[in-house]
C-alpha cells in the first residue's frame, strides 16, 4: 500500500504488483506529481509494442540480411484506472501532456484497468491516430 492510502494510490499499487509478479516487469516505480494522476514507469521483459510500419521494415530486413527483428524492451508509462471511474478527453490529454517523449512514433501509455476481482486488463493508448497492428 502506498503511503497516501487513497483509492487512486491503491489501484496504482495493485497494477504495479501485477506487472511485477505476473508480467515480470522490472525497474517499476510510481511517479506522482502533485495535482496529477500517478503514473507507473517500468520495463517489460520484451518489446511490448512495435508500429506496424516498423514491423514490416524489420521483417523485410530480417529476410534480406538475417538481422533479427528487434525485441529489446522499451520503458513504458502505465496509467492505472478502475472501471467505476469516468474519464474525459481532457483527462487523457493532460496525462499525455505530462509525459516527456522523444522518438519518431506517437506518445503511448498502457491503460491498466483493475476490476474489483483483481483482474487487470491492459490496453495500449496512443496519442493521435495510430493505425492498428496486423495481429
Amino acid at each position: 500500500m502506498g503511503p497516501s492510502h487513497s483509492p487512486v494510490a491503491d489501484v496504482a499499487s495493485t497494477v504495479l504488483r501485477n506487472l511485477q509478479d505476473q508480467h515480470d516487469w522490472i525497474s517499476l516505480h510510481v511517479k506522482s506529481t502533485a495535482g496529477r494522476r500517478p503514473l507507473i514507469r517500468g520495463l517489460p521483459p520484451r518489446r511490448l509494442y512495435m508500429h506496424p510500419d516498423d514491423q514490416i521494415a524489420a521483417l523485410t530486413r530480417e529476410k534480406a540480411t538475417g538481422e533479427p527483428v528487434p525485441s529489446d524492451p522499451e520503458y513504458e508509462w502505465v496509467l492505472a484506472v478502475h472501471p467505476e471511474e469516468k474519464w474525459t478527453l481532457g483527462g487523457f490529454a493532460s496525462v499525455f501532456d505530462s509525459i516527456y517523449h522523444v522518438g519518431p512514433r506517437a506518445k503511448r501509455i498502457l491503460l491498466a484497468t483493475v476490476h474489483n476481482d483483481s483482474t487487470v486488463v491492459y490496453y495500449l493508448m496512443h496519442e493521435g491516430m495510430v493505425k492498428p497492428r496486423q495481429n
Binding site: H23, L48, Y49, L89, Y123, M125, H126, N135
Partner: peptide
Amino acid sequence: VRTFSLEWAAM
C-alpha cells in the same frame, strides 16, 4: 481536435 487510439495490449 485531439484523438486517442486504443488497442488491446495482448498481455
